[in-house]
Amino acid sequence: MSGYAEAILLMLAINVVVAQAGYLPLAAGQLNLGVAGFMAIGAYVSAFVTNTYDLPIVLGIVSGAFAAWLVAVLLAVPLLRASGIYLALATFALGQVIQAVFLNLEVVGAAAGYAVKKHASFSLIMTTTATVLALVFLLSRTRFALYLTAVKNDPVVSDLFGINVRMIKVQAFSLGALIAGVGGALYAHQYSYLEPQNFNILLSVYIVLYVLLGGTQTVLGPILGAFFFTLLPELLRGSEQWRYVVFALFIIALMALRPQGLITTELLRRLTLRRESKG
């Protein structure tokens, strides 16, 4: 495999992972504009652990993910008092605060950046991505996925039907953060250098765009969204700015014409029905 193809595949793998990090909260109706902050926690903690204690990268990924999850759990209760646009704004502010914290944290290089000594192999990143996807797929087969949709569509009725709405919200938020932590840890050990500026609001916005473009109703949606967003700029040769112009026009058109995203449960159902009738 050529170096170029490998680089694209690695970027794609990381994007597919973080797309799931944006998807889980969105499936419960939470627009998390601070995903990049949780990625930053995963990236810095994993890099610090592998740099300082010479631990294997896998343990670094686990610690990074755990740290992001822990921060999310601790913050979820106060944060989730807000909902809708207030929650989106609160997570946005949280992302900015996390970024500002790393900008001032001398132990991981502060504004100067932080070099990561260990480099993850191609197979490690692919295996981790496959594991994350497999787990999310398994999760989507459980009642938990149903609860997420219920809480998203109508929290009051879900509550009346005996769903612990607050618990589901906290779980969706913190599981998303956990996956963002994994994505951040992969990022750290792939690109070998971390700067707080990498984890800015625009990254969070892109992650949310993967999910919304692909569709929030299925696990497949965000994967397709991540594929699309990673590969489209590569296919659109020419100057980088023109790529983004086309990309922006595409976002606007898609949101106007198909706001539910590319893949919906309805679409999947129809596709599978057609296949059955043929067989």
Binding site: L212, T216, F247, A248, M255
Partner: peptide
Amino acid sequence: DHEIPLVSSIGFLILFENLVLV
């Protein structure tokens, strides 16, 4: 969903900035 117009307005932000960059 309430996030849809927000996302399209982000699309416009990216569009305006990159048109000026071009």
